[in-house]
Design a protein around this nucleic acid. Structure first.
Lengths: 233, 233
DNA sequence: ACAAAAGTGTTGAGAGTACACCCATGC
DNA sequence: GCATGGGTGTACTCTCAACACTTTTGT
């Protein structure tokens, strides 16, 4: 991590380091991102993803959880959080050299308080297809997060983090279709789900206008990851 | 990246930031990592992966390339470099708070100068199966890099970066077997290679003790990534 | 001729995909 | 009954994986 030579670690000029979080949820049949409005220069009145400076005694992940909690009041158990990428080009912040460790998070819409955080006007959920102009290099960060989310959805079981504890299979399929932006075959979706044994049926049904739907729950002991198909055998 | 509130960006205490690089190559039929011996406290005389402080006017990637060049004198065109993960737990360095942006690199053994860098005694290639005690949290970083390398090898074409420009299919299969730690079926390996069209035959043969082997080259225009198998259809 | 390594083909099992069909409820 | 959405099954295609076989060189 540092050179083995005789450098004094204190004599180097140090950059600022922040943790930024791209927070996703599915709301109103759309994949949405949480944005906050900046009040100061630079990029005053632009929208930005939440973030803040890393404290000297907290880990990067703790820092990201703290940012997450400040804007959404969700706890660690209610959220999926994963380090995304570290962005640090000189000049990405006009004030000084700022390196940001970006995270992405998945929260279920039912866990969000209707009145999130402080001033509701300055915090909002935006559809991924209709984003406002974003501050700094945040467009790149959001775009990267979306790519990673779609990718992860295809070979792991993180999609359940976007749903309440109990859900119907149709709701689950909807989440997948919304995030991936494709339509899926009902029969195949369900048969594969049965084979992988990642969900279990629970008591109770949900009224939907036709035949009532069974409720399901994610199985914690489920194998949540599938072996990737190999390019070479 | 920063909070939109009224913080003065200059008033926060700043951590040190370094770039560390896990450099892989295949040498003597083994997957090896480049390590350097530390000369100073802390972890004096321990082995460590190369790294150094980020300069205020260079990007993270430039910093990683610089570290790479200092130890191996390979150029950007001769190497595959990818950001791995950012490690920043408080206490990972006893001197001060140091956050490291870790990269991993793949170089072909034929591109390495026999006499690498300065003192040969303090730089060495170590088999992944026989590593010495490492400084800081470098065991975790190397282990993470290895996982990522194996994973990438299965669904992208980065494996070619560990071979010379021209190679036989047997040599290619060997690299895959060494890195993945498994044995592969010759017939299936070749038929899949034919289908994906990532390599092309070139003139010339190589003597090997039996029937001479055809030489191949990686096709730059090849589709280097395969679609992941979906957990849900 | 035989050993050694290169290189190709075959075959059965299982996954992926498209689609048709039946079931339970409200009106 | 019939509209609506829930839920299952089938049949075809393609990939995966194991294995047998042929070809070309040196000695």
């Amino acid at each position: 991590m540092d050179t083995p030579q005789t450098y004094d670690v204190t004599k180097f000029e140090r950059p600022s380091v922040t943790a930024d979080v791209v927070i996703f949820t599915v709301l109103e049949a759309q994949l949405k991102v949480l944005l906050i409005k900046r009040k100061k220069w630079p990029y005053q009145d632009s929208w930005a993803i939440p973030g803040g400076f890393i404290k000297m005694d907290e880990s990067l992940e703790e820092s990201a959880y703290r940012e997450l909690a400040e804007e959404t009041n969700v706890t660690r158990e209610q959220v999926y959080l994963e380090q995304l990428y570290t962005f640090g080009d000189p000049g990405r912040d006009p004030r000084t050299r700022v390196i940001t460790v970006a995270y992405f998070a998945l929260v279920s819409a039912d866990q969000l308080n209707p009145q999130a955080a402080d001033d509701a006007a300055d915090v909002g959920w935006f559809s991924i297809h209709d984003l406002p102009a974003l501050a700094f290099d945040h467009p790149k960060i959001v775009s990267y997060a979306l790519t990673r989310l779609r990718y992860k959805l295809e070979y792991t079981a993180v999609g359940f983090q976007l749903l309440p504890d109990l859900f119907t299979l149709h709701e689950l399929q909807n989440v997948y279709e919304i995030v991936l932006g494709t339509s899926l075959d009902k029969g195949n979706f369900r048969s594969k789900l049965r084979k992988t044994k990642v969900v279990e049926m629970v008591e109770g049904r949900r009224d939907t206008g036709g035949r009532p739907a069974r409720l399901y729950r994610f199985r914690d002991d489920a194998v949540a990851e599938i072996k990737a198909r190999r390019l070479f055998p």
